[in-house]
Computed example of a mutant assay.
Amino acid sequence: MDAIDRRILTALQRDGRMSITELAAEVGLSPTPCARRLARLERDGLIQGYGARVDQAQLGLPVSVFVWVELETQTREAIDAFERAVRAFDRVMECHLMTGSRDILMRVVAADLSDFDRFLEERLMRVPGIRSLRSSFALRTMVRRHVLPVS
């Protein structure tokens, strides 16, 4: 990956809807070589897809809850089973396997506290293999970035 590839990635993270002509002009290439580079970045998996960033609050899901999960066992099978279960929950926006005393950290979105309570009782607490759950509600988001540093 060279400096032009980095400029392509930076530009597309800022505006994934720009045309190949606009992208080429921004990175200093003609459209055809720019399109070839873009196709290579997609093929190599550096660009994994395109999508719209939707405002969580305006969609009616203003609450973000961080949930720490401790599993009963930390075997590969237990972790895989938990992962398969939570992949089915569309309210789970992120799920990370962590180091330390707690095994998993998730970010869950909800309409309100009652909505989150329903999610806990009807979905998450029914996943086998969980030893304990701890939740923290985000009061406000201070920093949220969608653009990775490409240096």
Rank of each mutant, 00 (worst) to 15 (best):
F119Y: 12
S101A: 14
V69S: 02
R102Y: 15
T21K: 14
A11Q: 13
C95I: 06
A111N: 11
F66R: 14
R126I: 02
R40S: 02
M125E: 13
G60F: 00
R102H: 12
S101Q: 14
E77W: 04
E22H: 04
E77C: 03
D90M: 14
T75N: 08
D115N: 09
S64Y: 05
G60W: 01
D44R: 15
L12Y: 01
S101F: 14
E72A: 06
V86N: 02
G100L: 08
T99K: 08
T10P: 02
L41D: 10
H96G: 10
H96V: 11
V86C: 07
A39W: 10
M106H: 04
V127T: 09
D112Q: 12
R17H: 12
T32A: 08
P31Y: 14
G49E: 11
A24Q: 06
G45C: 11
D115G: 05
M125I: 09
A52L: 14
E122F: 15
V109T: 04
P33C: 14
A57C: 02
L59T: 13
D112K: 15
E122H: 15
E121Q: 11
L41C: 07
E42N: 11
D90I: 15
G16Q: 15
L12N: 06
L120Q: 12
V27T: 07
A57P: 00
G51S: 14
G51I: 15
V109F: 04
V63Y: 06
G28S: 08
P33R: 12
A110E: 00
L46E: 15
C95E: 00
D80N: 08
A111K: 15
A25F: 00
T32H: 00
T99C: 01
I20A: 10
E42V: 13
D5N: 15
R36V: 15
Q74T: 05
Q56I: 05
R118L: 07
V69P: 00
R37Q: 09
L46M: 11
R76I: 03
M93T: 09
L105A: 08
E77F: 00
V108Q: 00
I79Y: 03
L71I: 08
R126F: 07
T75I: 03
Q74D: 04
E122W: 15
R14W: 09
D44Y: 09
L12G: 06
E94Q: 13
R7L: 03
M93F: 10
I47M: 10
T32S: 05
